[in-house]
């Protein structure tokens, strides 16, 4: 990992990976949407509405993975003080917030026909909303200081504090009675979902993760360029 704390080496790797990830994102999302929307069975209870699962569930997975990325980058920044880890954390939070918003909105669109309501204040929905607020708080805090270094460190501590929310989200459906269905993919005793539905779900998840990686790398690259620009401008003699 320390090898890639060197920005030049990291950017060379990122630039090499980006086209492949971009192709993977477009290809997997296209194939997954075709599978999910056209070439998979309707649910015996939910009917065609089950297809919302293929856009909702991967978004929720990436929302959680995005926060894990943010927390890992923050820990790396606090421990080793790699500036690149700070950039990765700053890059991760708006992307993660975006996927959390997608999960919340598609969940509401699914809840309306299935539960008869757009929103319920149960444990799963509330804890994901808290995740969204944590992303917003992290974005606000990192940008609230005149010294970007100080903002990055404060944001890193906040990101680590917010990790307590992750297990709450994961286990909220088991600990409390809720309208949201319990874990059905990653559970003891195997998945309860039929392979005909599991395949499009995993293809879509692959596409979502590829989009997340592309957005993350593009943002890190942009933030790095921005910081370089700032340094160059500060090093110029007053014009």
């Amino acid at each position: 990992m320390h090898r890639f704390a060197n920005p030049t080496r990291f950017l060379r790797l990122a630039n090499a990976l980006l086209p492949w990830l971009g192709v993977a994102a477009v290809g997997l999302l296209g194939y997954g949407l075709w599978l999910g929307l056209l070439n998979s069975p309707a649910d015996y209870q939910q009917g065609e509405t089950v297809r919302i699962m293929y856009v909702h569930v991967p978004a929720a997975w990436v929302a959680l993975a995005g926060y894990s990325t943010l927390a890992l980058a923050s820990a790396a920044f606090l421990v080793w003080k790699h500036p690149l880890a700070d950039l990765a954390a700053r890059a991760a939070s708006p992307v993660g917030a975006g996927f959390t918003a997608i999960a919340l909105v598609t969940g509401a669109l699914w809840g309306q026909p299935m539960w008869g309501t757009w929103w319920v204040w149960d444990a799963r929905l509330t804890s994901v909303l808290v995740l969204f607020f944590l992303y917003l708080g992290h974005m606000a805090l990192t940008n609230a200081f005149d010294d970007p270094e100080r903002g990055g460190k404060a944001g890193a501590v906040l990101a680590l504090v917010g990790v307590v929310n992750l297990p709450i989200i994961k286990f909220s459906v088991d600990w409390w009675n809720t309208l949201h269905q319990p874990a059905s993919v990653l559970r003891m005793g195997g998945s309860t979902i039929d392979p005909a539905m599991l395949t499009p779900l995993f293809v879509m998840a692959g596409g979502y993760f590829a989009v997340f990686a592309v957005a993350l790398l593009l943002r890190i690259r942009a933030l790095y360029a921005e910081r370089r620009l700032r340094q160059l401008r500060l090093s110029l003699p007053d014009a």
Binding site: T126, V130, F133, L134, L136, G137, A140, L141, A144, F145, D146, R150, G151, A154, V157, L158, V161, G162
Partner: peptide, 25 residues
């Protein structure tokens, strides 16, 4: 925790509420 994070921040009063209130849910 929130107060320690926002030392020296702009608009610290609003920021600390934005950070701490979700954690107090």
């Amino acid at each position: 925790v929130g107060a320690a994070l926002v030392v020296g921040a702009r608009r610290a009063g609003v920021l600390v509420a934005l950070i701490v209130l979700p954690l107090t849910i």
